[in-house]
Amino acid sequence: MSTRITGPIRRLKEDILENTIFTLQDFMTCTKGLTYIIMGGILVFMPLFWKFLTDREDD
């Protein structure tokens, strides 16, 4: 059974993967918005990764 993606997720897929962005406003909103989300993810990931690297140092 194939599931049809609809709504905002479909729009995001079209915008990003199929590169159908028509205006600079769309481009900036889409790329900057996604970049900020990724940066947030990195900010959460890096301290956790540092903890993973160092939590056995006292052993």
Binding site: L34, T35, I42
Partner: peptide, 8 residues
């Protein structure tokens, strides 16, 4: 990844 994203 940020570079990929910012240049779409």
């Amino acid at each position: 990844i940020i570079g990929l994203s910012i240049d779409n």
